[in-house]
Design a protein around this nucleic acid. Structure first.
Length: 547
RNA sequence: GCUCCCGUAGUCUAGUCCGGUCAAGGAUUCGGGGCCUUCGACCCCGUAACGCGGGUUCGAAUCCCGCCGGGAGCACCA
């Protein structure tokens, strides 16, 4: 009560102490008074009889925070994927966040392929340039310009010279293991004392090919006592003889990520760097270099790691499996790549809302896929036709089935008459999902939209056909099972999330579906017709999307 | 081990910078009900949170200190 008064009237705040004493007294006086009398007394005081209910708060719009110092129309952002595979949900976040800011402020969005030479394990591969371009397109992200780091290598050399001139770098000739050990112990390598002009000579020798890969690096001179061992004398340039898919063997001296971005974030006029927090140490490196050279660089914003609980696949594993052919390319559902989500009928709009809802939070999060599914359902449910599908079918012959129901008309969507109807051949022989028949054995059930029947009491494993008994027609509160009329049943092949194919039967109407159309198999989930399925052909090939 | 980052319901998130209408909002999940010939959608209702411990203050999710827990980095990868 005290804090409420103080909040309402700031003038009272200096007198908080007195006020508290006064309140204590009043409250003590009122303690024994019955509630009804209190209400009366309140009314005579002229105040509102009952406190007005608090107005509901406005729905919090998931807005991204403002970009510091952003000038409308002048924002320049960058996407910097390494071309080593298809884009996944984490990349999606990078795409959507950057795009969202470009839309908010106006400006430019650059796609800069981070294709420095990589390593033996992490190779740049040609096919991935187009793959990633395609993924961006798919995600609805159209960069204003596409650049390749590999075209800009030579532009980095003058910056190296500037750093050397400041006496802030040296050519180190330690083997990698020794370098690592010295760094961990905070011990200087012999070349650390090198004078700038000597470094200049050594740098030229690097460029001229005097050293083999692994024999020399250009290292930044920071502070060997730096509390963060990761920051001690980081490598700026190294040698590599690997062939680059775009520039071949044109360069042997390659910049490392932090240095290359310290250069390009400035030279490309990037206004804000938005990236995952796995790259925070790069911020410090870039700032260090900018301070050293007296140039101004953009601010950095980060977000934490995002994991979808069901998507446990490591990127490297996805890469291997795709490469080896164990996966069905980058659209295999097991990769959880953007392509695979699209294939499953998850719209990029839904994915965008989903990833944007996490804002720029630095927390590492693990989100159940259900959250994404819910977002997608909102978008597709109302316009998705319903169809019947049964997995692992059991033939059910219904004794006493009424003849007049041999053909029946069903709506395509229970709540959307505008989606029309379809005509279905029904009975007396049906297919039901084995799991349903077993679970409901001996019970009366409702054939959805049709009639009630009693299932046989036992259904031994492997039974192909069972007999059921017609009981009544009126709709009752019975378990409702979906069914497929035997006459018009068509084989359906469902690609599941684990990469396996499940066989089943669908109603005849799905033969009329279009490739890439999304339909809902009732009580099963949303599926999408495969893009390369020949319309009208059997089996009907679909990919499982989500419940 | 060292460095940095992060801890709000089952799961995400708003609020934290700048202490007070925050008796903490939203989404999703879950539970109940309604509607409905799906276990889907929709509508209504409900459960449920400031990691812990100190301190500052009239007042702490918010500021300070300590602890605990989680993540990332410590590559001549990106």
């Amino acid at each position: 009560m005290l804090s409420r008064l103080l909040a309402t009237d700031p003038a009272l705040r200096p007198k908080a102490g007195e006020l508290r004493d006064a309140l204590t007294t009043i409250v003590a006086e009122l303690e024994g008074v019955p509630l009804a009398e209190l209400t009366d007394r309140l009314a005579t005081l002229g105040g509102p009889v009952a406190a007005a209910p608090r107005p509901p708060k406005e729905a919090a719009t998931a807005e991204l925070p403002e970009l510091p110092g952003a000038v409308p129309g002048r924002v320049v952002l960058r996407l910097a994927p390494f071309p080593s595979g298809g884009l996944h949900i984490g990349h999606g976040r990078m795409l959507f966040v950057n795009q969202a800011y470009r839309e908010r402020y106006g400006g430019r969005l650059l796609l800069v392929f981070d294709d420095t030479i990589g390593s033996e394990e992490k190779r740049v591969e040609t096919e991935f340039f187009d793959l990633i371009l395609g993924d961006c397109e798919l995600a609805g992200v159209r960069p204003d310009e596409v650049l390749y780091k590999s075209d800009r290598i030579a532009a980095h050399y003058p910056w190296a010279v500037r750093v050397i001139e400041r006496g802030a770098a040296y050519v180190c000739r330690c083997p990698p293991e020794l370098l690592r050990e010295n760094r961990a112990r905070g011990v200087a390598c012999p070349e650390r004392a090198q004078r700038p002009d000597a470094t200049q000579d050594e740098w030229r020798r690097m460029l001229d090919g005097a050293y083999a890969p692994g024999e020399a690096t250009l290292r930044l001179r920071t502070d060997l006592a730096d509390p963060d061992p990761a920051f001690r004398d980081r490598v700026l340039f190294r040698l590599s003889d690997l062939e680059h898919p775009r520039v071949g063997h044109r360069y042997r001296v390659w910049p490392l990520l932090e240095f290359s971005w310290a250069v390009d974030d400035v030279e490309l006029g990037i206004s804000h760097v938005l990236r995952g927090k796995d790259l925070v140490i790069e911020d410090r490196m870039e700032r260090f270099l900018w301070d050293l050279l007296g140039v101004e660089g953009p601010p950095f914003l980060h977000w934490g790691m995002l994991r979808v609980r069901e998507a446990k696949v490591a990127k490297s594993k996805a890469y291997r499996e795709v490469r080896s052919g164990a996966y069905d390319g980058w659209a295999d559902p097991r990769t959880w790549s953007l392509r695979s989500l699209d294939r499953r009928g998850i719209s990029m709009e839904a994915l965008r809302e989903f990833t944007l809802s996490f804002g720029l939070s630095l927390t590492d999060i693990e989100v159940p896929a259900e959250t994404l599914y819910a977002e997608n359902r909102k978008r597709i449910d109302a316009r998705t036709p319903r169809r019947s599908f049964v997995a692992d079918p059991v033939k059910v012959e219904v004794d006493g089935y009424p003849f007049d129901l041999a053909e029946t008309t069903l709506p395509n969507h229970p709540d959307r008459p505008e989606l029309g109807t379809r005509s279905v051949r029904a009975g007396p022989t049906f297919y039901l999902a084995r799991a349903d028949v077993v679970a409901q054995a001996g019970r009366e059930i409702r054939l959805k939209d049709l009639v009630n029947v009693r299932l046989p009491a036992t259904v031994p494993d492997g039974t192909a056909t069972v007999r059921a008994e017609f009981t009544s027609r009126p709709n009752q509160r019975l378990p409702r099972l979906q069914w497929v009329g035997a006459e018009a049943a068509v084989p359906v092949d469902v690609l599941e999330l684990d990469g396996r194919h499940r066989q089943g039967l669908g109603e005849g109407a799905i033969l009329g579906a279009r490739p890439e159309e999304i339909v809902q198999f009732e009580r099963v989930g949303f599926v999408r017709l495969e893009k390369d399925w020949a319309p009208g052909s059997a089996p009907v090939r679909v990919v499982y999307g989500h419940p």
